[in-house]
Design a protein around this nucleic acid. Sequence first.
DNA 1: GATGCAATCGCCCGAAAGGGCGATACCACG
DNA 2: CGTGGTATCGCCCTTTCGGGCGATTGCATC
Lengths: 212, 212
Amino acid sequence: MAPPNSIRVLLVDDHSVVRMGLAAVLSLDEDLTVVAEAEDGTQALEKYQAERPDVVLMDVRMPGLGGLEALRALLAASPGARVLMLTTSELDDDIQRAIDAGARGYLQKSVSREELVRAIHQVHAGGSYIPEATRRRLLQLAKRKHLSNREGEVLDGMRRGLSNRDIALTLSISEHTVKAHVKAILHKLESADRAEAVARGFEQGLLRVEGR
Amino acid sequence: MAPPNSIRVLLVDDHSVVRMGLAAVLSLDEDLTVVAEAEDGTQALEKYQAERPDVVLMDVRMPGLGGLEALRALLAASPGARVLMLTTSELDDDIQRAIDAGARGYLQKSVSREELVRAIHQVHAGGSYIPEATRRRLLQLAKRKHLSNREGEVLDGMRRGLSNRDIALTLSISEHTVKAHVKAILHKLESADRAEAVARGFEQGLLRVEGR
DNA sequence: GATGCAATCGCCCGAAAGGGCGATACCACG
DNA sequence: CGTGGTATCGCCCTTTCGGGCGATTGCATC
């Protein structure tokens, strides 16, 4: 069933439909063998230890232990792991983090069969694979103004309708400091007021709908 | 290959991985046969006319002719078509529109194999299939406070960082009126200020990320 | 014809926001 | 050791916001 010199792949995705689709695509290439599947990050870690696959194909968004956390945990335990991240959404801002964390590639689920197979081969050979479109997206994201942790917390207060004073209370700092952060946020996000800043936060993926 | 009394299915999705996954899942049930696949709405219409499948499985989000438009066009041409909509995103507010347009069901791509197969059988039998979670989501959407057209325009002004006066200018009404609308919006959205109102707008699908 | 809703306009006022001008301290990176 | 970013705190001042209290018009629905 599994050819001797086959590339052994671990699939990690919470959607069984997607897992089967990936498995079907990989089965088209006789050099590829799916040796295990996992439905979440925790399972992925276990299966990796058990099977020691050559390449891991992992979804970014998963319930429980998410793709990014799983990626970090996996690489912490097995620094040599070769992981290709997959994503459904076009507007994930996780690309940068995934690459930083050590992913060897970052693909959309919209990739063609050929590109997916090529990517796996390339990653298995020790290289990395990032599609042109994703590369462009990375450049675009690099231009994005980055908020500090504190500013992120303040922005979150704003989105919840808190006044500067209330944000100060929840963060246990002075209102003056909050105002300073707000000013920095408005400037970085090129926004006229907190309403626009919140909108930009959603547009740029700094704020998320799904209850964080 | 195709059993005589098989349910003939048309798959419509722009992601080849998903199409293969769906095909793989359906192939597990011997009563189901995928007779055609389409990558977008336009192709879907052609394939439907050519194959006259019993059930159509169609993605909501597609480039070109989107799923909803395709659904309407398909039902206009063939009122008897039985269409099951699929979606990737959990927070689509298209559920209502899809049902209204005549879809027989609305599934997440995260459905289990069993549920997907069951849904197709049910739809083929002339019934409809909407999962519990989706039903709940529908109820939640029904409770969603509805903004009037004018209020929607004012909310959009807020998200763009406009002051009440500037909104008044762009809408050619008095600032007093804008303030009245703003008050109504804050009340309907249960928000303390415009920043929270904008956040609620995004959360409830009243505002969208993708450049309107 | 009443009832309800949307849209429009009005005033008063206190609280909050945001701009502009500062400052100190810490820490990491070069 | 300087440079830059972050986090903290400070004051002054003008504009804007949002609450509370109104109102009239028109339109559709019942």
